[in-house]
Design a protein around this nucleic acid. Structure first.
Length: 302
DNA sequence: CAGCGAAGATTAGGACCGTA
DNA sequence: TACGGTCCTAATCTTCGCTG
């Protein structure tokens, strides 16, 4: 008796005929018939009632099938015990850091899908004040990988770019600038400004916009919380520059967005991790993120 | 009830593998 | 390398249910 004969028995049970079972097993009908005949001879029992239109398992056949399924379960268990159930299935731990902004607007789905696809990897998620803080944690070995907005300081870091986002100015819907689609930096300088706190990816973007000219407008407050910044702008306390995906993902009728004329507002975002670190879970995560870069980009651009 | 088609059983022959 | 066993395919036979 061997597993092939029992596999034929199960295939017949599921398919209802020798011919269909043979197709499933990629054999000919006669080969399946041969396997069953040998099994029946060995056991001295009829395992299958040859009836029309469908053949059915005899009580002895059902007993044999139950035994086969128990055996398959045992084999599976044995493979798990020796860690060879699927050599491609990686297990272990992965520490991931991201700003709340990143999780909410860009990476939440990606991280969720990764956890679902790799149940044997324990993902430990840390939220950081900013992407820069995430990168600092990677350098300090407090986390394995961090989602960041570039540029990021750190020679010991390796990076993967996942996409590019634009920045836009936001004003309250009733603001006099709300009748325009775009605005110059000089006009922005005439209004109180709500600025991202140092270290935030978008702070780098606004520094680039304002510090290349005559500096920032009057700063009324700083924050690293995009939702808070949007709230302050809605209250009419000032204008702000935010990543466009934070506006278009959850369109707010109380806010108006303005393209910034003549200024580079694009900013790359992606992953950073320590150079020369060998980790299967990290490799898998980076590959997973790379494969979904277009989906993330779609989120950033929507 | 004969004819037909579908499906299982049987048989001949070949490929492959282990063993002496 | 010859031989025997195993397992397969292809061809053919047999059986059974359906239909006119």
């Amino acid at each position: 008796m061997d597993l092939k004969q029992l596999a034929a028995l199960r295939a017949i049970s599921e398919a209802g005929s020798f011919g269909q079972a043979a197709k499933r097993l990629r054999l000919t009908q006669s080969a399946v018939s041969y396997q069953i005949r040998n099994l029946e001879e060995e056991l001295g029992q009829t395992l299958i009632f040859r009836s029309r239109p469908n053949v059915t398992l005899s009580p002895a056949g059902l007993t044999a099938l139950r035994s086969y399924e128990r055996i398959l379960g045992e084999i599976d268990q044995l493979r798990i015990s020796f860690g060879s159930r699927d050599e491609a299935e990686v297990s272990g731990e992965l520490r991931v850091a991201s700003s709340i902004l990143g999780i909410v607007y860009l990476y939440g789905d990606l991280i969720g899908e990764f956890i679902y696809a790799h149940p044997r990897i324990e993902v430990k998620m840390t939220t950081t004040e900013s992407g820069q803080e995430g990168a600092r944690q990677v350098i300090a070995r407090q986390t394995d990988v961090a989602f960041v907005a570039f540029p990021i300081d750190g020679a010991q870091l390796q990076s993967i770019t996942l996409g590019v986002s634009e920045h836009v100015a936001i004003v309250p819907a009733e603001h006099r600038l709300a009748e325009f689609d775009s605005v110059t930096v000089d006009i922005l300088r005439q209004h109180p400004f709500v600025r991202y706190a140092p270290g935030a990816g978008s702070r780098h973007a606004t520094d680039r916009i304002f510090l290349s000219g005559h500096g920032y407008p009057p700063i009324i407050l700083e924050s690293n919380d995009t939702e808070f910044i949007k709230r302050v702008v809605r209250m009419g306390l000032g204008l702000a520059i935010v990543p466009s995906f934070t506006i278009s993902a959850a369109k707010d009728p109380r806010l108006h967005t303005l393209r910034i004329e003549g200024q580079p507002t694009r900013q790359e975002f992606g992953l950073v991790f320590r150079r020369r670190v060998k980790s299967k879970t990290l490799d898998l995560f980076c590959e997973f993120a790379r494969a979904r870069a277009s989906e993330i980009l779609q989120k950033a651009g929507r």
